[in-house]
């Protein structure tokens, strides 16, 4: 257990040194500040609570950005170290392979968590400082946004490891990572939309649609945040859907957790069988 933390701490140390932490935090900070201050201007004073607007824009941003960042940090984690030869040395130490992998996971998720909390949290603080009234309800939704964003990051870090444990060279890993990102973030939803249009509601029931959405972690995240609280769902146009969909929040979180644990377990399994 101790070895796991030693690996995690080294991973964070490296993240600080090669400026991943800095770059990610600044990127999230800049985008969220831009979105909230430019994005809230048009809404004026028509009774919309500003933080709810921010939540809608930030969750749309996170769906694209966090998976990409998470995959970029993680696709190289195993195959890159094997390639450079550093893994050979590390594994000659009294540390098990699952400890190496989970240690890296903790380190990478900590980096993402730090960047998300600081980047998004600063926006909430900035809104409050500029005199926007923030209600407890919105604040709770905002906390949910940050928490689920970190979880979304963890999902894609785990998927990245699975790729990294399986393939033999870094280029392939990078290609597959981009492919997975395109598939889960863009193509999947387009395909569902297309199917809905073609089908005209004949065979695709609401239940089936729910199931299809549950199978994609980014959609689970979207449902969790956009339909999760009344104020937000009214804004996001999800109110209509929210009545149809009956997924309780714990089930959605459970789904995200499963999307983290299953690829992670797969990565551990494949990595421990890998010949060096």
């Amino acid at each position: 257990m101790k070895s796991l933390w030693i690996v995690a701490i080294k991973e964070i140390q490296e993240g600080l040194r090669n400026r991943w932490v800095l770059a990610t935090t600044l990127l999230l900070l800049a985008l969220s500040l831009t979105l909230s201050f430019l994005g809230s201007a048009p809404t004026g004073n028509v009774g919309v609570r500003a933080l709810d607007v921010v939540i809608v824009s930030l969750s749309s941003l996170s769906i694209f950005l966090l998976p990409l960042i998470a995959l970029l940090i993680s696709y190289d984690a195993i195959v890159g170290e094997v390639d450079r030869g550093t893994m050979l040395l590390l594994l000659s130490y009294p540390v098990a392979r699952w400890q190496v992998l989970l240690g890296k996971f903790c380190g990478h998720v900590a980096i993402l968590a730090f960047a998300t909390i600081l980047g998004y949290g600063a926006t909430a603080v900035a809104l409050a400082a500029t005199g926007t009234p923030i209600e407890a309800d919105s604040l709770f939704a905002f906390a949910r946004l940050i928490g689920s964003s970190i979880l979304l990051g963890a999902v894609f870090v785990a998927i990245g490891y699975l790729i990294s444990a399986k393939v033999q060279d870094r280029g392939t890993a990078g290609g597959i990572a981009i492919g997975i990102w395109l598939l889960l973030v863009l193509l999947y939803d387009m395909a569902i939309l297309g199917a809905l249009v073609v089908d005209q509601g004949r065979t695709l029931s609401a239940g089936m649609l729910n199931l299809l959405l549950l199978l994609n972690p980014t959609d689970v995240y979207r449902m969790f945040n956009l339909a999760g609280s009344a104020g937000v769902s009214a804004l996001s146009g999800m109110a209509g859907i929210a009545e149809v969909q009956t997924m309780p929040a714990p089930a959605l979180l459970g789904m995200l957790a499963a999307w983290t644990l299953v690829p992670l377990a797969g990565a551990v399994l494949i990595f421990s069988r890998r010949e060096l």
């Binding site: 070895s3 030693i6 690996v7 080294k10 140390q13 490296e14 040194r17 090669n18 450079r84 030869g85 550093t86 050979l88 040395l89 590390l90 000659s92 130490y93 009294p94 540390v95």
Partner: peptide, 23 residues
């Protein structure tokens, strides 16, 4: 190992402490 390599971002001291803690 033959052609030993290290994580280039860390200093010699940091790396050696890391390996010592692992052992």
């Amino acid at each position: 190992p033959e052609n030993v390599s290290f994580n280039a971002g860390l200093t010699g001291r940091e790396l050696l402490s890391f390996y010592a803690r692992l052992k």
